[in-house]
Structure formats: C-alpha cells, structure tokens
Design a protein around this nucleic acid. Structure first.
Lengths: 173, 173
DNA sequence: GGAATAAGTTTCGAATGAGAACCTAATATT
DNA sequence: AATATTAGGTTCTCATTCGAAACTTATTCC
C-alpha cells in the first residue's frame, strides 16, 4: 500500500529506532531551552540574571533549569561566598550543544534576520569570524544535500569504498 | 553591581538585538517542527504519510505544516496525477536546516542514545559516513569552546588579524 | 452511483504556558 | 538584635496549546 516511494533506504518508521533527534528534542525541544542555553554560553549563571536577559516567567525558568540540570546539560551548585546564590554552569554535554545552537542561529541569521548579527563569534586565535557550519565528508569536503545518502550500518562496517547502488536515494531525489 | 562577570564582550541584553536564534526558534522551536523536517528529509511528502511516521495528531500536523509553509521551509503543491493529493516539499530554505538538524541528531546520538544509530548519513560519492558537525575557523581548523570569543562587528571590518585583548572572554572562561 | 481515499476542520477535555503574588533562607543595615 | 533586602523558588490563577476522536469535502476507483 501507499507504494509511492521506491526506496528502502529511508530512515525507519518512527523514532523508536536509532535516531538521536527525538532524544535531543526531548530536552531541547521545549520552549525556552535553547534561549537559556544561549544565555549560558554567554556567561549567564544566576537565576535572576536569566530572568532579566530572557524575560521569561519565574516558574517556567525554574522548571526549565531543573530539566536542564536533570538531563545533565547544566550543573547546579551553591556559591561558596554567598550561600543564597546558585550557579548554573554548562557541563561538557551542554558545551557539546554549541554546534547545534550555532547552526540554528546561523540559519536564522541567513534567512530571517535582515541585518548581520552584531556580536560575531570568532576564532580566539586570529580574531576572524568562524565559518558557516556545514556537513562534511570524512575527508572534510563540504557536502550539500545532493551528495548525501542514507546507508544501513551493516553495509558499511566492511569499510571499503562502495559504489552506491542505483536505488539508493539521495536527499534531494 | 553583580560584578561577577569581567567582560563587556557578552552578547547583548536580550534577543531584540541581532541574533538569529530567536528567529529560528520561532518556526523550528515548536513541538513537532523538527520531526516533520526530519521526515521531509527522508522523502515524506504527503499528509497521511507524515501522520503514520510521526504519530502526531491530525489537527496539529495540519497546523505545523501550514506554519512551515508560511515560513518558507516547505512548499505545498497539488499533485498533477491525483488532485486529491498534496505534496509538501522542502525549499532551499528548508534544506538549509540540515546542518542544524544533524548537529542536534548527532548530539542526541552521542549523549542520550545508547546504541549507534542505524541508518547512517553518508557521503554519496564514496559511501563513507559523514563526520561530526563541528565549529571551524575561516581556514577550516576545528575549534572547541575554549578557542572561541565574541567580537563586535565594528572591530573586525578592518579585517586584520588581531591580538585578542586580554579582557576578551572565551566561552569557557 | 456508491465506496474509498486524501487532506483537512471541529469539538472538547487534558496538559502546558505565562503573570502575579507569596514564601524561605541567607545576607546586609541600623 | 531587629529589620530590610536579595536570591531563588513555590503557588495560584488564567489563557493557550495539545491531543484524540468525530465530522467534512473533494476526488478517484469500482
């Protein structure tokens, strides 16, 4: 039935199978999560500071921070000097979201924001702006959607360069 | 006051200023948007097909598709052969979300998914899996969070390599 | 013509969001 | 020591959104 799509090389049925996207979205898909993350990357650490920067409601912020901590993206720790204060800091798992956040940000900049964004993320070594986030082959060639294909993991453990079978579907058909 | 952060080079106050992230989230931050996008990248085109793959409610799907069309990520077009059917296809703007989606997916795979994901996105040319999405300098060096810094656009139009001022803050402090 | 299919809408209860006021513990002020 | 202030939350409402199921409309199949 519904035999309109010729390929078997499509990502399987739903998200039960091995795909990281639903798992990522479970945490980061919620309404303010990415904005909180952005603030964290900008050095924001404290509750009231998030509140000011984001204009989010207190209860929502409280809830989101708890979830981000629970999922290991932030750590919550009491300040040594002032024991009222609490610091929310990025973990390695949190820092590892930077490429995703930047890719999203760059997309927004390119397609929705009229003006180029003002503070520019730069290479600390030479002060040059970072380049656009791209998809790359194992040898660092930049790949466009036409040059991509899904393959079953079982077919590639052999590691040899393969002639892609004709029925393999690229992302652009 | 609250003088715990030494730097002025922090991204400004809120999202009023030039940041693409809130703009990106306005469309893609909603509950099912990324999952619909993933399905689109996998060749899903039709309403009932999205419905099956995602397990989303009809009315929500209808709403999300409309918003994705409205924001230029998908186009809605009548099928030529069967005029009941409607195709939702990715636009260039939609395809351009692939790096963000993959970065998110890779993050989920790395940190939340136990098992390596089964269909692997590969270079169509040589069949090798793509590499992890990374942040790169203008000369393609891979950059970690410690090697990044925010700079004001006005300071870098001059284009010369700069010695980063001491008070410039990297993302990891 | 009658059944089936595709793509929606409508309806309504459940869950989630936002705003404001309130609360508690630790510090600062007098 | 008594009081005020600050930091980080809760609790309370109310509005919006989500979700499941039933209903609608246009087209194609038999």
């Amino acid at each position: 039935m519904t035999a309109s799509h010729p390929s078997k090389l499509r990502e399987p049925l739903s998200f039960v199978a091995g795909c990281g996207l639903p798992l990522a979205l479970e945490v980061m898909g919620e309404r303010w999560s990415f904005m909180i993350l952005r603030a964290s990357f900008n050095g924001v650490r404290h509750f009231e500071e998030f509140l000011d920067q984001l204009g989010i409601a207190r209860n929502i912020l409280s809830n989101r921070l708890a979830r981000l901590v629970e999922s290991g993206i932030l750590v919550r720790e009491h300040c040594a000097d002032d024991r009222r204060r609490i610091e929310y800091c990025l973990t390695p798992k949190g820092y590892d979201l930077l490429p995703a956040m930047l890719a999203l940000r760059q997309w927004g900049e390119k397609w929705a924001l009229g003006v180029p964004s003002n503070p520019v993320l730069c290479d600390a070594r030479d002060g040059q702006p970072i380049s656009a986030i791209t998809i790359r082959a194992h040898d660092d060639r930049v790949l466009g959607p036409r040059e991509l294909t899904w393959r079953d993991r079982a077919d590639l453990v052999l590691g040899r360069p393969v002639t892609i079978p004709a029925e393999t579907v690229t992302l652009l058909e």
